[in-house]
Write a protein that binds this DNA or RNA. Structure first.
Lengths: 235, 235
DNA sequence: CTGCATTTTTAGTCGTACCAAAAGTCAGGA
DNA sequence: TCCTGACTTTTGGTACGACTAAAAATGCAG
């Protein structure tokens, strides 16, 4: 994969070099990048190239470049990876069927999570779920708060396997699907219905019944999708 | 979220504008972008800014900017989204536990796919699986070919739900995990073992037994992971 | 109509210059 | 002494102009 080194890209070399310094910790997380003028001297290139490199690193998520500020190193986490795709995904969601395709994968993933939870959840996990469920119940009259606690309940499912990739995925789903979700009419009746679904999922997990857990979760999300369709039509 | 418009970024406005033109099809897929000089005239900005915008669009995956060529529009697909994260993910995989975390999500996903296949696979799906399985069997002596057919067999699982997101995810897994996988010693005995595992998965799907399908798939991938560990130690 | 040489266009890079916003400095007052 | 606000320096954002080499377009000859 090693291409013609002196061919068409000076900036890419700088990108690679800086990325490596970030990865190895020579440039620690949170530290501002050296000034552009220093970098151009160090690499023997023009500021044009330096700026291109910075721009690239920024959209790669390795640094955070606020408009007029010094870019700061942002050691890549799974969240940064999600951010990096955000732009593309938002385009994909505007395509017909885009939202549905994404939502379907969410159903798949959470169905798996529910099964896994029913089989492997520890006492602490159950306690966390219970606590999230109670908060959700308390929020039924307050749609704003219900949305938050609803999210948090699902979030617990993503935490149970103790895999840092999963919470990032959850954040991705909530971020990307938020435009649809947040514009839906919020009614206490609906909140009640959703809470009941959460309770059913919780109960199934508590009973260590993977099939029931998956079924109730699928039912829950499928109904949620029906609500989305009722609001937005086919998307 | 609308910020101070005349504040700190001229390039971003151009990025937004061009991205919109791509999405709406004013700039169709495959068409080269207008020359930089035309764009600077059209937007009333300097070439510096145009180039920054192009660079950004490129790393966002909306256009493909080969070194000395005209950037061509590349309507974003799910594959492009995967590419966009590639850079970050490759960093994450170098972190301790990074590969395992990713592989675990793969096990989760494919476990779900196997269940779903057992429940919903059509005749055509089964036929595709069978065909992939046969190709896999025929390739047992040829490790190179076996790797390919192995991949293809798993790929069929990702196709069954008919959700375009899933094949993209499969491609992501194979791309990101390839460095580990392709360096593993290839032995016909191992191929035989993996083929047997594939056969077990296929049989379970054929028997419409989701539990067995999931179990055999988990077993298969867990053993594959053990092979990785045996080769690379803890990663 | 086809293949090749020539011209034109265009991306890549450099350098300089200027502005405005941060960041850093320092003096004066509480 | 410590805080505060004005002042200076640094630094990112943008513009303009120039030059090179590669790519694309053109035109010519066969």
């Amino acid at each position: 994969m090693a291409q013609q080194d002196e061919h068409g890209r000076a900036a890419d070399h700088v990108v690679l070099s800086i990325a490596e310094r970030i990865r190895t910790g020579v440039l620690p997380d949170g530290q501002p990048l050296p000034p552009e003028r220093d970098l151009m001297e160090e690499y023997g290139i023009s500021r044009t190239v330096v700026r291109e490199a910075v721009r690239t690193l920024s959209s790669r998520g390795l640094i955070e470049a606020l408009p007029r500020h010094r870019p700061v190193v942002r050691k890549p986490g799974f969240d940064a990876a999600i951010d990096a795709v955000g732009s593309i995904v938002s385009h994909l969601l505007l395509e017909p069927g885009g939202v549905k395709n994404l939502f379907d994968t969410r159903i798949m993933v959470e169905a798996g999570l529910a099964r896994q939870a029913a089989q492997q959840a520890t006492k602490d996990d159950i306690a966390a779920l219970k606590s999230a469920l109670d908060a959700n119940a308390a929020a039924i009259p307050d749609s704003e708060e219900f949305y938050r606690t609803d999210n948090a309940f699902h979030g617990v499912l993503y935490q149970i396997p103790q895999n840092p990739v999963l919470p990032a995925i959850h954040r991705a789903y909530t971020t990307w699907l938020a435009p649809q979700w947040s514009q839906m009419p919020r009614l206490p009746e609906r909140n009640q219905m959703n809470y009941d679904a959460h309770k059913a999922i919780f109960d199934a997990i508590l009973m260590r019944d993977p099939d029931a857990a998956e079924a109730s979760l699928r039912d829950h999300l499928t109904k949620a999708w029906a609500q989305v369709r009722a609001t937005f039509g086919d998307v």
